[in-house]
Every structure is written in C-alpha cells, then in structure tokens.
Design a protein around this nucleic acid. Structure first.
Lengths: 339, 339
DNA sequence: TTTAGCACTCACCATACGGGAGTGCTAACA
DNA sequence: TGTTAGCACTCCCGTATGGTGAGTGCTAAA
C-alpha cells in the first residue's frame, strides 16, 4: 500500500492535472503544495508511483499524468467530499418542479441541470414503463375508428397511444371495457400483468374485448422499452482532450448509440450509491479516455432509473460525484412526492 | 447581366468549390470543364466576376471563392434540379409512418431523415398547437384530486396535462363538463376559442365549471408555444469550415437559442416553396458563414410548420433544396392523411 | 533518507527556405 | 477586338533547423 507521503504526492498530482490538463512536474508540486521536501525527493516518489502503475509519463522529459489505476485510487481513497457553494437540494428540487409541467419534462430538466452543474455530458435513463405502477387507464372512442388509449403511471407519467380498429365498437362498449381494464390494472406494474388478468377480461367481454386488449397490449409493448437521453453534449468540445475534432466525433457517435449507453448505465443500476467507472473500465472503445459517474434514482423505495455524467478521465471527480448525488436525490424526492 | 460564358465560368467555379472546399484556379476550370478557351481567358473572366462581386480572392495568389452574391445568383439562375437516386417520396413517407407510433415522433423522424439525406443539421418547427383543430377533449378524474386533461388535435397530436384541484369534484361532474367542453371545442382551433365559448360553459356549469375551465386554459397556454427541434447537429463537425472547434462551438450555441431559430425560420413561413437564405442574408452573427434552406409543410391546405437545413454557405444547394422539398412534401401528405 | 548538482532528453516555437499554385500584365496573334 | 502564350510576381505551405525551457534520472555529499 502507499505510504502517507506517496498519497499526498499522488493527490497533489491528480488535483493539479485535473485543474490544468498539463503533465505535472516535481517542481510544481513542491511549489504549490507545501510538503516540506525538495523537488528531488518528490521525483523519487514519482518514479516509485510510476513503477507501481499510478502514474504515467507521456515522454521522458515531461511531467507525470495519472493512469486509470491512479484515478481509481484517488476516487476510492484520496478524494475529499465536495460541497457545491450556493446550490442546495431544495433549490434543485424546486427548479425541476417549476420549470416544467410534466414529469417527463422534469426528468429532462434534471438532465439539463446535471449537465449545467458539471459542464459535462449528462445521461438519464427514464423510468422504464414496465416497472411503474398503473394509476389509471382510459380508453376514449374518437369520432372515426380510432381509440385513444391513455395510461397514467405512478410518478405522473402519461402515455398515449392512438390505435385504429377495423371493427366498429360503440362508445358504450369502449367505456365499459375501459372501466373494467382500469379496475384490473390499477395498482400493479406492467411487468406483473400476466395473461391471467386479461383472460378474465376476455372471458367477460368476449371477442370484442379480446381484439381490443390485443391492440392495447401491442401498443404498450412498443414503447415500454427504456429510454435514454443525453444533455449538454456540446460541453465535450470545451474539454481540451476533445479539441481534436475527430476524437470528438467518435465520442458524439458513441453517444448516439442508445442501446450501448443503456448497457453501460445498466451495469451501475445493480449497486447503490454513486458509482464511478474509469477509462478502460468501460469496455466501449470510444470511451476509453472517459469516465462515467452514475447513480440510481427512486420512486419510493424502488429503483426506477439511472442518471450519469460522462467526461474525460481527467474530470473533477469530487464535483461530479457531488452533482450526481444531489441531482439523483432531488429527482427521487420529486418523483416520490408526485402522487 | 452576366453573359453566357461568365455564367458557365461562375457555375464551374461554384460547383468545384462546393465539392472540394478549396479555392478554384483558372487551370482547374479549363481542365475539368471543357469550355474551349485557355486559362488566360478564364482568368480575365474571373477578374471581371470578382470586380462585379460574384467572386472573392482569399489572397492574391490563391484561386477564387464564391461570394454570397455569387451563391445567390447560382441558386437563382444557375442551379440544375437534383434528383436523389433511389429515394422516392413514397419511400420517405412510409419510413416516417412505420418508424414511429405517434405523430410527434414521426415529425422527429422527418427531421432525422432530412439530416441524413443532407448530412447537415436539420431543423423542424412543430405545428403550433394554437392553429390546429381540436378533435377531442377528455377530462379524466383520477383517484386523488388530480384531473387528467387529454387533447387530441387534428393531425393525430395528443397533449396531456395533469392538473390538481383544491376542491373535490365528483367524477360525474367532471365527465359532464368533459362532454360539454368537447362539444364546444370540436372542430375549431385554439386560436379561435374566444372567451364567449367559455362563458357559455360557465353559465351552464357555474362556479365549478369556471374554476376547471380556468385551470384547463392555463394548462393549455403553457405548451401552446411553437417548438423547434434540431437533428444531426454532429454533422457540423464533418464540414471542413468547422474543423475549427471554436467556430463549431459558436454555431452549436446558436442552435441552442430556440427563440432565435424560430424567428429565422418564421421569416420563411410567409413565402411558399423552398426558400434559401445565404450567409449574411441571415442576421445572426454565428450564422454569417451559413446558409439556411427552408420550406413550409401543411395539414390539408394550412401551413402548420417549417422544416429547414442549416449548413455552410458552401453547401450543395441543389441536393439540399431537393431534400427539403421532398421531406416537406412527404411530411405534408403524412399529416394530411392522418385522420 | 534527503538533497544539491548536473548532464541529458525532448516537445515546442520561431525562423528560414524552397516549391508550387495561382495571379496580373504585356505583347503578339487571329 | 477578343484570345492566348509567356513571364514575373505573390504568397501559402510544408519541411528543415536551431535554440529554449521544462523536466527527468543519476550521483555523491550531507
């Protein structure tokens, strides 16, 4: 394990590198942080740290740069908790609440806030429909052959689907079915609604019920998948590591691959608290130079989604972790309060 | 006016510059396009074209580059209609229809297709709620004090709003009001619904009606504004004129200013057909090096929105204009068919 | 174990220089 | 009068060159 002074040196180097994005030399450390030793001593420590894999040297006459292993140690053992000056949980909470009239928009707003706080790219996995609790289902017959299916899910999420039927149903039939379905579904999640529930409905409403229920199920299935949004993608270009346009393009393209991002964030969903994946800990090729900080959010006690931030491995971990933590808490309390 | 040969030279230069993004010299023109004259003659023509403002010279020993005036003449008088190989209106139409289950998503899909066809940034102004015709309004009482307002507008656009009331209304009251409001609103646009319509409702339903109607109106007002989406913004970075990251950032930021974009596209909405605004014809500072190609789209005979493409002034106008035209037609027919 | 001293490395910057693409001008030619 | 060949001139750009400075590793002394 690293002794006290090595830790101090490592932390000083990483702090400095995070701030300046320039390789850090022994002189700089000796000058800025008052360790009470000469540059030569620090050089020796740095050589040791390099040998044990915590630091790297871009070329022989440059300073040192943290390795992924170095960042890992920094995050696990050296980092000091960060407190955002003047930003409170309550404020965030209110900002989301006021800015936007619907739950979905508020989730987007959370992503926007997170991107703003971190000046990085934020990601947010929206609650996947199939683990939320039905609050209401309503079928509305329209004038033509259309039927509007409206579903309200627990934290105030509303989904609509226009479906077309070939057969002509009377408004009364539809309303009756609507009430029956609503009774069946209320209080359970999409995932729980097995075929048994519907066989009951079909038994009671015959062919008509069956045909409609099938259409509804089909409609629901189409957008029950998880959805992921990115916000603040432009911020990438302000990072010195992405001044090279080709690199930036590669990352932008990786961010378009929604499924891939989902699996990245999905990995984090299993653990609780703020998770950090550093550099090559991510499998994705375009993200080897990036780190990902994630945290799950809740409705009540149920995990319903994940938020995260992507930035260069040289990100301000303390700040980003604090931001992710805050926003996930604010979002959770917002969603939980929502009736 | 320009004589025939000057036109040929100008067109050759612009075509070449659009393709290569390099200043065009007299030799290149003489070699590629067989004008039957020597480079020296072309040089004379080029000098004339520069003097009359159609061309510019980055520096004395470079070739010529088109000026905004040159592009304008090119677009108005020289351009040849472009036909996309293997892309048909029908195909686009179907692609939008199949890809997405809701009208709003299909409009997004139109933007995506346009960005893909042009490899540029596409913009789309979604139909503003207040000029669309109400098809249905439904109030649904939820278990708690909430009421779900669902509105279906003519081309299949569905809006929801959860509102909370302090008073307790019985489900019957709400349904009754729902039916009454629906009767009043059906077939008219938001813009047309003056206070008179609601005074009738208020007269018939008293205080309860009044309070609810006010809440509904307020809810509607909040998202009646026009919305604008950009798609394919990453494509900017592939343009040689935006290899410079700072320029790219400036443009990205301009693209975030929704109101500003709206006013830009709004200007086009007054004329019919494909409109082109070249370089400094746009007032916006960050877009002086860009051109904007726009076209309105319809529901039936009513203009409901605008689509457009933003790219460097050195864009392939023929191709972009063709794409904008095609997509706007496909979108119009899609929305018009939608019952 | 720490530190001063020193030779060495190498990215970075400024300068210089030659090649090449392109121009404008002039004079001859149809 | 319009066209063209020839030519001198301009200026960007890529490459080579050398100096500077930041930073290192090693050695020897404290």
């Amino acid at each position: 394990m690293l002794d006290e002074r090595k830790r101090l040196v490592l932390r000083a180097i990483i702090d400095s590198y995070i701030e300046t994005a320039e390789p850090v030399g022994s002189r700089t450390i000796a000058r800025k942080h008052d360790l009470g030793v000469s540059p030569a001593t620090i050089r020796n420590e740095m050589a040791d740290l390099e040998e044990t894999g915590y630091l790297q040297q871009p070329h022989v006459s440059a300073g040192r740069v943290p390795s992924d292993k170095g960042y890992r140690f920094y995050v696990d053992a050296l980092i000091e908790p960060y407190v955002f000056p003047g930003v409170e949980l309550r404020k965030l909470h209110e900002e989301m609440l006021n800015a936007q009239p619907s739950t979905e928009r508020r989730i987007h707003e959370a992503a926007r806030l997170l991107a703003f706080l971190t000046q990085s790219v934020s990601l947010i996995v929206a609650p996947s429909t199939d683990q939320l609790v039905f609050k209401h289902l309503q079928l509305v017959p329209l004038e033509d052959t259309g039927i509007l299916v409206t579903i309200v899910l627990h934290p105030g999420i509303v989904k609509n689907r226009l479906i077309r039927t070939k057969r002509d149903y009377s408004p009364d039939q539809i309303f009756e079915l609507s009430t029956a379905l609503n009774q069946k579904l209320k209080g359970i999640t999409y995932r729980e609604l097995g075929p048994t529930i519907f066989t009951e409905v079909i038994r009671d409403y015959g062919e008509i019920g069956k045909a409609l229920v099938e259409l509804i199920l089909q409609g629901l299935a189409e957008d029950k998948g998880e959805q992921i949004y990115a916000s603040g993608t432009v911020n990438i270009l302000n990072q010195p590591e992405f001044r090279d346009v080709d690199r930036a393009i590669a990352l932008f393209e990786a961010l378009e691959e929604k499924e891939h991002l989902l699996s990245l964030l999905g990995a984090a969903a299993k653990s609780s608290g703020v998770q950090v994946a550093i550099g090559t800990e991510n499998v994705s090729a375009a993200m080897q130079a990036c780190s990902l900080v994630t945290c799950t959010y809740y409705v009540g006690d149920d995990v319903v989604g994940t938020i995260g931030v992507i930035g260069p491995t040289r990100m301000d971990y303390a700040r980003v972790m604090a931001a992710v933590d805050m926003v996930s808490h604010a979002l959770s309390s917002l969603l939980t309060e929502e009736k």
